[in-house]
Design a protein around this nucleic acid. Structure first.
Length: 198
DNA sequence: CTAACGATTCGCT
DNA sequence: GCGAATCGTTAGT
């Protein structure tokens, strides 16, 4: 079942991040359907988190979508090459977001392989934030897309991953954030082979 | 207007 | 393990 606004518009970004593990991200674009299980995410808290683009409530054209009510897609270009896909959360005015870092492919694998210019399934198909965006066909045209629409959405699975199977660790690539770089705000499913780093 | 840099990936060693 | 690729965003002139 498709998750609706109420899932995303809660205030606890860490709780939402944990609950996103095991859910299925789906895109339908160009008549092609692709889906994958979310196995790794990172939480970013706008007001209080130096690693977040919206730190200290900094407001720019790029971060604007994070200030809207949660449940939208926040996509941005990183290193001039990679599209990174985030899910916004919280109520209007609270710029929280969750970066999806890795998926386990579920359907539309042929399409994913084609988009990634690969011939067989291997980990790099959808492990890593830039890689999964490419596999799912996510680009800047997805910026601001509601997650209750019919182009990109998230489906509930068979309940939440239990706490014993969730690992909390420090986030990747946020060394510039000082003390906030040490926060254990990266969550992934224990022993899942699609997680981007051990 | 200009310059520095990044929530990364891939290929080569 | 290391370094290049590559360009929009940002903040400062």
């Amino acid at each position: 079942m498709k998750l609706d606004k109420s899932f995303y518009q809660r205030t606890d970004v860490l709780q939402i991040s944990r609950e996103l593990l095991g859910k299925t991200l789906v895109t339908r674009t160009g008549g092609l359907l692709t889906a994958g299980t979310i196995v790794e995410v990172e939480a970013y808290c706008g007001a209080c988190d130096r690693a977040c683009h919206a730190y200290n409530n900094r407001r720019t054209a790029r971060t604007e979508i994070m200030y809207q009510p949660g449940g939208h897609s926040y996509v941005y270009l990183c290193y001039g090459i990679h599209y990174l896909f985030n899910i916004t959360s919280n109520i209007a005015g609270h710029a929280d977001a969750i970066l999806v870092r890795a998926l386990e492919p579920v359907s539309g694998v042929e399409t994913m392989l084609e988009r990634r210019k690969m011939h067989k399934i291997e980990k790099r198909l959808s492990s890593g934030p830039g890689a999964l965006s490419q596999a799912m066909g996510i680009d800047m045209t997805f910026y601001g897309s509601p997650l209750w629409g019919d182009r990109i959405w998230i489906e509930d699975g068979t309940g939440n991953i239990c706490d014993e199977d969730i690992v909390a660790a420090t986030r990747i690539g946020v060394d510039y954030a000082g003390e906030d770089a040490k926060l254990p705000w990266r969550f992934y499913i224990k022993d899942n082979p699609w997680v981007s780093r051990r």
